[in-house]
Amino acid sequence: MSKDLFFKRLDSSSPHGIYFYDDRIGMWKLLRSDGGAFEPFEKGVYVIYFDNAKCSACRRYDEIWYPFVDKWIKEKDKGFKFVIVFCDWFARECRSSAAAETFKKFDVHASPTTIVLYVDNNNTVKYQEKYEGVMYEFELKLILEKFEERALKAMKGEKVSPPISKESGKSLEDLIMQILKALTLGEKKD
């Protein structure tokens, strides 16, 4: 049986593959590098970071991502599972069939990309949101704090919108206004 591989942070020397954050020890465990695409293994919210070793924006995101995950797990956990899918450059330059297939499965063509999934008791993805580009801690918090609530509404057939939509923002000012609006609306009681 092979020895488990754990990392505090991934870097260009880390093996390509799919990693899971083990909150008991505060490290990233290589789940696998061979096989098919990532499949959720239990009910909960999965936060998946698609990381390319040759991506300079990913290195900037790392400075936000790693401290955020540590802090979130300690303060909020609530069944969140954090995953990293790691290759050199998407599925084109990847020494892991599992990671390459996961990039393809989730149609990831920008890096970094963060995908958040809501998975039910049958390990079936019921709702997902996809965010491309570097996100800051406040954006990650804004996305995750009410994610499960949005997922449950969507499962009931109600219309939901992600709190941050970079596609609709034409400028940084528009994005800031979207974030402020989402923060304001998130505090109102029905």
Rank of each mutant, 00 (worst) to 15 (best):
D77S: 13
K104V: 15
A37W: 05
V83E: 07
D11C: 04
K156E: 12
L172Q: 07
S96G: 13
K159W: 00
G133S: 07
L30T: 08
D62H: 05
F50D: 11
E39R: 05
L183F: 08
S33V: 00
W89H: 14
V83R: 01
K71G: 08
Y136R: 10
Y49M: 02
S97V: 05
F20K: 13
A91M: 13
R59Q: 10
F86H: 15
T124F: 09
M135V: 06
E101I: 03
A154C: 02
A154Q: 03
C58V: 04
S171A: 03
A151E: 05
R150H: 07
L10S: 07
D22L: 03
K170Q: 12
F80S: 10
T114Q: 01
G35Y: 01
K153Y: 03
I115R: 01
F7C: 11
L180Y: 12
A98K: 07
W28A: 05
S97I: 05
H109I: 10
D120S: 12
K104A: 13
L172F: 10
V45I: 15
G26T: 04
S111T: 13
L117R: 09
F50A: 11
Y46P: 15
A91Y: 14
A151K: 01
N121Y: 12
R60T: 11
K159G: 01
I48P: 11
L117P: 09
L30S: 09
G35C: 03
E148M: 08
N52I: 04
P112D: 03
A100S: 15
E173C: 00
F38P: 04
D88V: 12
D190H: 08
F82R: 02
W65E: 03
K141L: 09
V85Q: 10
E187K: 13
K188D: 00
R60F: 01
K153H: 04
G157A: 02
K71C: 06
M1L: 07
K43I: 05
T184V: 10
G26C: 02
R95H: 14
D11R: 00
I115C: 06
N123A: 11
D190Y: 00
K81N: 15
K166W: 02
S165T: 10
F68V: 00
W28E: 05
G26L: 02
R9G: 00
P15Y: 04
F86N: 09
R9N: 11
E139F: 01
F90E: 08
E39P: 00
M1I: 06
V47H: 03
F6C: 06
W28G: 06
C58H: 04
V47I: 13
I164M: 08
K153E: 04
A91P: 14
E63N: 05
F103Y: 15
Y136P: 00
K43W: 02
T114I: 01
D51R: 12
M177N: 14
V134K: 03
L30H: 06
D174A: 02
I18R: 02
F90N: 06
W28P: 12
D22H: 10
E137H: 03
V47R: 00
G186N: 13
D51E: 11
S165E: 14
M1N: 11
F6M: 07
A37K: 12
